[in-house]
Simulated scan of single mutants.
Amino acid sequence: MSKRLFFLALLITLLLGATPARATTSGGWVPAPSAPFDAPAGTRCDFPVHAEPVLDEVKTRVLARYSDGSTKREAYVGDLIFDVTNLATSRTIRVDIGGSALVDYARGGTLETNSTWHLVGPAMFGFRENGGNRPRGIYVFDGIFRVAFDATGVKTVTRYQGIERNLCEELQR
C-alpha cells in the first residue's frame, strides 16, 4: 500500500470512529441537509434530471479553522439516499450515497470551489461538459476517492480503490 493510500485509510478510519449515532448526541455535530436539485437537458445528462433526497441523516462537524475563523477542515457522516429521475421517461434510480467525507478548504473555499474531498463512498457528484476529469454526467463514487475542486469548480477525481457509476447511462436504459 502506498504511503498516500495508507495515510488516507488511516484518516478515514479515524473519521469513521465518529459514527452517525454518536454524532447525534455529542461533539459539535450538526445536521447537514441536502437539497433536491434539477439539471436541465444537456447540462449533466442528455435529458432533464431531478434528484430528491428520500433519507437524509447527514451530520457535519468542523474539525479545524483558519485564524480568521473560517472553516479549514470539516467531516461529514451519515445515511443519505436520493431518488434520481430522468424527467423525459420518468425512470427513477434510488442511490445510496451515504459515505463519509473529510473536506479540506483553501482560504475562502466552499464545498464546490477550492476544496478537496477525501471520501469513503458512496458519494454523488455531477460533472458539466469540461467540468473535470470525467465526462459530463452524474456519478456515484463508491470506495476510496479524492475529489479536488479548483477555483472555478472544475473537479479532479482520483480513485484509490472502488467503483464509479454514471447515472446518466443507467437512466437512459
Score class of each variant (00 low, 15 high):
residue 4 R to H: 01
residue 6 F to M: 09
residue 6 F to G: 03
residue 7 F to L: 05
residue 8 L to A: 08
residue 10 L to V: 11
residue 11 L to M: 14
residue 13 T to W: 14
residue 13 T to N: 14
residue 14 L to Y: 15
residue 15 L to Q: 02
residue 18 A to E: 08
residue 19 T to N: 12
residue 20 P to N: 08
residue 21 A to T: 13
residue 21 A to S: 13
residue 23 A to L: 12
residue 23 A to D: 11
residue 23 A to W: 11
residue 26 S to L: 13
residue 30 V to W: 12
residue 31 P to C: 08
residue 31 P to L: 15
residue 32 A to M: 08
residue 33 P to K: 09
residue 34 S to L: 10
residue 36 P to G: 08
residue 36 P to L: 15
residue 36 P to H: 02
residue 39 A to E: 11
residue 39 A to H: 10
residue 40 P to V: 12
residue 40 P to W: 04
residue 41 A to Q: 10
residue 42 G to H: 03
residue 42 G to R: 07
residue 43 T to Q: 11
residue 44 R to P: 02
residue 45 C to T: 09
residue 45 C to D: 11
residue 48 P to A: 13
residue 50 H to W: 03
residue 51 A to I: 13
residue 52 E to W: 15
residue 53 P to S: 10
residue 53 P to Q: 09
residue 55 L to A: 11
residue 55 L to R: 05
residue 55 L to T: 03
residue 56 D to L: 06
residue 57 E to L: 13
residue 57 E to A: 04
residue 58 V to D: 00
residue 59 K to V: 13
residue 59 K to D: 14
residue 60 T to W: 01
residue 60 T to G: 01
residue 61 R to M: 07
residue 62 V to H: 11
residue 62 V to G: 00
residue 63 L to K: 05
residue 65 R to C: 01
residue 67 S to E: 15
residue 68 D to T: 08
residue 69 G to D: 11
residue 71 T to D: 00
residue 76 Y to G: 04
residue 78 G to R: 01
residue 80 L to S: 00
residue 80 L to V: 02
residue 82 F to T: 05
residue 83 D to P: 01
residue 85 T to E: 06
residue 85 T to A: 06
residue 86 N to Q: 03
residue 86 N to C: 09
residue 88 A to S: 14
residue 88 A to R: 14
residue 89 T to K: 06
residue 91 R to D: 15
residue 92 T to D: 05
residue 93 I to Y: 05
residue 94 R to W: 07
residue 94 R to Q: 12
residue 95 V to I: 05
residue 97 I to F: 08
residue 98 G to A: 06
residue 98 G to N: 03
residue 104 D to G: 02
residue 104 D to P: 03
residue 105 Y to T: 00
residue 105 Y to N: 01
residue 106 A to I: 09
residue 106 A to C: 09
residue 108 G to R: 02
residue 110 T to I: 01
residue 110 T to K: 04
residue 112 E to S: 08
residue 113 T to L: 11
residue 113 T to R: 13
residue 116 T to F: 02
residue 118 H to R: 14
residue 118 H to W: 00
residue 118 H to F: 02
residue 119 L to G: 10
residue 120 V to H: 09
residue 120 V to S: 03
residue 121 G to H: 03
residue 122 P to G: 10
residue 125 F to T: 00
residue 126 G to F: 07
residue 128 R to H: 05
residue 129 E to Y: 04
residue 129 E to A: 11
residue 130 N to V: 03
residue 130 N to A: 12
residue 133 N to Q: 10
residue 135 P to L: 08
residue 135 P to D: 15
residue 136 R to N: 06
residue 136 R to V: 06
residue 137 G to R: 11
residue 138 I to D: 05
residue 139 Y to P: 11
residue 139 Y to G: 03
residue 141 F to C: 07
residue 143 G to T: 15
residue 146 R to Q: 12
residue 148 A to F: 08
residue 148 A to N: 02
residue 148 A to L: 08
residue 149 F to Q: 02
residue 150 D to E: 02
residue 152 T to Q: 13
residue 155 K to G: 00
residue 158 T to E: 05
residue 161 Q to D: 13
residue 169 E to T: 09
residue 170 E to T: 04
residue 173 R to H: 07
